[in-house]
């Protein structure tokens, strides 16, 4: 099968490759550019551990074909910290103890980021609803929800 030329922006860098037409975005990120922060936990779209943000929308990258994101702008967990400063969500996850084994963490943070980008001050109910897109096996979600609310409050108070 012939490969397809794909180019997109990922974490503010433009990349271009020849990819297999049946390659998933998760494979491309992990295998071609070593962005291993996105995890394959189920491979079937059920858990959200591979969530990345594509043109503002959180996507399960295990269900996306790389050719589909040609020309898109992608953010992965590796792209959140800017100029050596962690994203408020990353700080909040640390400070609130929302991280245990860490395997779901990047997907959780990306899901939360997409939420805060479209809704600056979500209610707790809204946070829970959004975060119910992702599975965590360790935390019971309490500290994850707290972290997202905390990050939102810090972001709004900071303007």
């Amino acid at each position: 099968m012939k490969t397809i030329k794909v180019s997109f922006r990922v974490n503010d860098e433009t990349v271009a490759f020849q990819v297999k037409p049946y390659e998933t975005l998760l494979e491309t990120l992990r295998e071609r550019i070593d962005l291993i922060g996105s995890k394959e936990a189920c491979g079937m779209g059920a858990c959200g551990a591979c969530t990345v943000i594509v043109d503002g929308i959180p996507l399960r990258s295990c269900l996306v074909l790389t050719p589909e994101v040609n020309g898109a702008s992608i953010t992965t967990v590796e792209g959140l910290a800017k100029d050596g400063n962690l994203h408020p969500l990353q700080e909040a996850f640390m400070e609130k103890g929302a991280v245990q084994c860490g395997f779901c963490t990047s997907g959780m943070i990306m899901t939360a980021k997409a939420l805060l980008d479209r809704n600056k001050k979500p209610t707790q109910k809204e946070v829970i609803k959004t975060m119910s897109s992702n599975i965590c096996r360790c935390t019971g979600y309490k500290k994850i929800v707290e972290a997202v609310e905390y990050a939102a409050s810090r972001r709004t108070s900071a303007g």
Partner: peptide, 11 residues
């Protein structure tokens, strides 16, 4: 989990 081989076309 990898996908089976197929071609991709955008209409």
């Amino acid at each position: 989990m990898i996908l089976p081989k197929f071609d991709y076309k955008k209409a």
